[in-house]
Computed example of a mutant assay.
Amino acid sequence: MAETSARRTALIAHPGAELYGSDRVMLETIAALVEREWRVVLAIPTDGPLVHEATALGAEVVVLPLPVVRKRALHPARLPGFIARSAVGARRVDRLLRSVQPHVLYASTLTVPLWSARARSTGVPVVVHIHESERQAPVLLRKALALPLRIADRIVVNSAFSLTSLTEVMPGLADRSTVVYNGVPGPGNVVEPRASVADGLRIVYVGRISPRKGVDVAIDALHLLTASGIPASLDLVGAVFPGYEWYEEQLREQIARLGLQDLVTFHGFRTDVWPVLTNSDVAVVPSRLDEPFGNTAVEAVLAGRPVVVSAIGGLAEAIDGFASAIPIPADDPAALAGALERVARSWSAFRRTALAMAPIAAQRYATETYRRRIVEHIDHVATGTRDLHRVQLTPEEA
């Protein structure tokens, strides 16, 4: 493959242009590569706030409309259309590969297999970074989603839970897979929590507004909490995925039915989460389905705030060892309300503990560690090294 300059080039394929968990981790990958003088070209299917952030880091951004694998796209009724769009998209990918001439393709998430397939067909080595875990999905669907990974030279997963979920259905991928925990940037400085919550516990949810994230569980918990005599309010920070507008409407109906209109506020998507975390007393991550990791839970710990988290999947792994994180059963409004009541009634203790946990989280999920590790894997694949299973994230660096 001809080189167009002395710098090595990484082509990153990403499925969207938002700024949620996997988007922010991908930006850390861009930063890591640019720091080491790689040329980075980012290909995304649509415009969005991610474009500005990626460009500011030094990446060249190409908006290339292509189909992205979603579970609904694999439905028998939709599959023929998805295949047809992929065939058209393959030609666009090939043109960009010829133009960019990358030394490596970095596929960010499982949902862009077309990029991996076309890159591999032209001799470009492939790194796939998995941010998903569909352990609760049917086995056949999990195998279908994992099958394209067989062509990857290296697979990076964001938690031991995600790795187990993957190798349960595709054991042969274990020897080319490695866990690298997300690097999660913290706030510029940690603002101490309020001395008292007597005027009402300020609860915040940050993340996608979707059924699997359990936002309705948080609303039910707020109702139970206030009914027990604990004054509280709930801020919802995030937006629905296109096609799920019905869920936000359902939440608003739930809020009206429970008489919580004055206690729940929809803030929409926010690029900067630190002001809303700083203004809160406690965060909630009430996911009802397995998550591969828990960026928002870690962000709450980094902000010096207690956080109540569903003890499932990668969420439990992400908050393990943090005394300010309270694990609860998933899909259980009473358990969530009970945990929030504990925080309110023992506020001084939780306040002190949350402040103490912030620097520990900053060390465990340091972006410097993530950047070093992810570039190690990309470097090794780009240079043809095959013994990457020996490059592991140590507990101290995790």
Results as ranks from 00 to 15, higher is better:
Ser86Met: 07
Pro333Tyr: 04
Gly259Arg: 05
His389Phe: 13
Ala2Ser: 14
Val298Pro: 06
Glu60Arg: 15
Pro67Leu: 00
Thr226Met: 12
Thr385Pro: 05
Tyr205Asn: 03
Glu37Gln: 15
Ser210Ile: 08
Ala283Ser: 15
Val127Ile: 10
Asp331Trp: 06
Asp331Phe: 08
Leu97Lys: 05
Ala362Glu: 10
Val126Lys: 00
Leu27Arg: 00
Pro306Ser: 06
Phe293Glu: 14
Val61Cys: 01
Pro138Glu: 02
Leu234Gly: 09
Ile44Cys: 15
Ala356Thr: 01
Ala325His: 01
Ala198Pro: 05
Pro359Lys: 08
Ile219Gln: 09
Val308Cys: 07
Gly21Trp: 01
Pro125Met: 11
Ala339Pro: 11
Pro333Arg: 02
Phe161Lys: 06
Asp379Phe: 01
Ile219Ser: 04
Met170Asn: 10
Phe322Met: 00
Thr46His: 14
Ile326Asp: 08
Val62Tyr: 08
Ala382Phe: 03
Pro49Phe: 07
Gly268Trp: 09
Ala198Asp: 13
Leu141Ala: 03
His389Gly: 11
Arg345Thr: 15
Thr122Ser: 13
Glu37Pro: 03
Arg373His: 13
Val343Lys: 11
Glu28Ile: 07
Thr271Glu: 09
Tyr181Cys: 08
Gly123His: 09
Asp94Cys: 11
Val179Cys: 02
Leu11His: 05
Asp272Ser: 14
Leu173Arg: 12
Asn295Asp: 12
Pro306Leu: 02
Leu166Cys: 10
Asp320Tyr: 05
Phe350Cys: 04
Val308Trp: 14
Ala152Ser: 14
Ala54His: 08
Val282Ile: 12
Leu145Gln: 04
Leu140Ile: 04
Thr265Pro: 08
Arg202Thr: 02
Ser348Lys: 12
Leu97Phe: 09
Leu79Pro: 02
Ala318Thr: 05
Ser310Tyr: 02
Ile255Phe: 04
Val127Met: 06
Val127Cys: 09
Ile155Gly: 07
Thr29Asn: 04
Val88Asp: 13
Leu141Asp: 04
Val273Ile: 08
Arg142Asn: 01
Ala358Thr: 00
Lys143Ile: 09
Val25Trp: 06
Arg352Ile: 05
Gly207Asn: 12
Ile209Asn: 04
Arg150Phe: 15
Arg372Asp: 12
Ser133Ile: 08
